[in-house]
């Protein structure tokens, strides 16, 4: 009986924490629990929430992708450049996603074929993609796009901001992929025990490469939303996003050693980070201090994960 209670608390602890923080903030700030603010929080969350969904795949295999912020920047820059050059929007959208896919593919191949640890490869890619963004934009922002393009970040469907809809769709697709497809089941299996997967005659390298492609493409998708919403692409966009993204996945209960985690966990984790960011802003806490808090949250989340792992 008691064991069950503890188990439940562990599974739903994150939701409980989320609710507690929301209640706390509602009391502390009159603005927090207003429709406007809530929509605002979720819309902000969607940018890195989408990336966190991609990151969930990577972390489930036991890897990590530090390059997401930079990939966002370079995809956004190329998107903006192509729009400015007058290319049709559809082509721009595909090309932007293509950039993300390309970055992910390169990362994935280095991880699987050259057998370099993901940490190092993506650290390298983080610098490469950022550099490419700076080279492409010569260091300046590219701004001012057509109203059609700006709908992606600023439009509404049935009164719901489009970024939120995209976020939800990505979450749902990811859930289906993880639960109902080969790719999804192998993702969990590789993180649980890659040797077993390989000895089962599965081309684990292929699927491992694929998760980095997924992570790259979600970064590009977020780049589209961010560029559209800000009406500008900056070469320094997305700096430090990897922190929020990884934090969201880890807070959502994924294990950094792989094999355990879920999209729903990541979804709540992303919202939690969004709420904390928003709450600290509302309470007038300095951005410098916010960084400290976020760092502590990440360490805390991983620590919790260690404690859980030890029990197993």
């Amino acid at each position: 009986m008691k064991v069950k209670f503890v188990e439940t608390l562990k599974s739903y602890g994150i939701i409980l924490a989320f609710l507690l923080i929301c209640v706390g903030l509602s009391i502390l700030s009159p603005v927090f629990f207003t429709l406007n603010n809530i929509i605002n929080v979720i819309r902000q969350t969607s940018i890195y929430g989408i990336m966190a969904v991609g990151m969930t795949f990577v972390i489930l295999t036991g890897g990590i992708d530090l390059s997401v912020g930079s990939v966002l920047a370079v995809s956004g820059a190329i998107c903006a450049g192509m729009l400015k050059a007058g290319n049709p929007i559809i082509l721009v959208l595909l090309a932007t996603l293509g950039v993300g896919v390309g970055c992910g593919l390169v990362t994935g191949l280095f991880v699987t074929k050259a057998r370099i640890t993901p940490f190092v490869v993506t650290l390298g890619m983080m610098s490469i993609a950022r550099g490419l963004a700076l080279i492409y934009t010569r260091g300046y922002p590219i701004s001012g796009f057509s109203p059609t393009f700006r709908l992606i970040g600023g439009g509404y469907i049935l009164g719901i901001p489009i970024p939120i809809i995209i976020f939800l769709v990505v979450v749902i697709i990811a859930y289906i992929v993880l639960m109902q497809t080969k790719l999804g089941r192998y993702t969990y299996a590789i993180g649980g025990n890659e040797e077993t997967v390989r000895l089962s005659g599965i081309n684990s390298d292929f699927f491992k490469t694929l998760v980095y492609v997924i992570s790259g493409s979600t970064a590009a998708l977020s780049a589209l939303i961010l560029t559209s919403r800000l009406n500008s692409a900056e070469p320094v966009a997305g700096t430090g996003y990897e922190l929020d993204v990884i934090a969201a996945v880890v807070i959502g209960g994924a294990s950094l050693s792989g094999g355990r985690g879920s999209v729903w966990g990541t979804f709540i984790g992303a919202l939690l980070i969004g709420v904390i960011n928003n709450g600290m802003n509302l309470l007038g806490i300095s951005p410098y201090f916010q960084q400290v808090v976020k760092g502590l949250i990440i360490i805390g989340a991983v620590w919790l994960d260690q404690l859980r792992a030890k029990e197993e």
């Binding site: 969990y188 299996a189 077993t196 599965i202 094999g259």
Partner: peptide
């Protein structure tokens, strides 16, 4: 270390070898 993924279910472990045969478009 080589035969099982301990953190996955009986189903996932057993079905692992035939997912490619028993799926349509993934």
């Amino acid at each position: 270390h080589q035969g099982l993924v301990l953190g996955l279910s009986v189903f996932d472990n057993m079905a692992m070898t035939i997912l490619d045969k028993e799926s349509v478009l993934g």
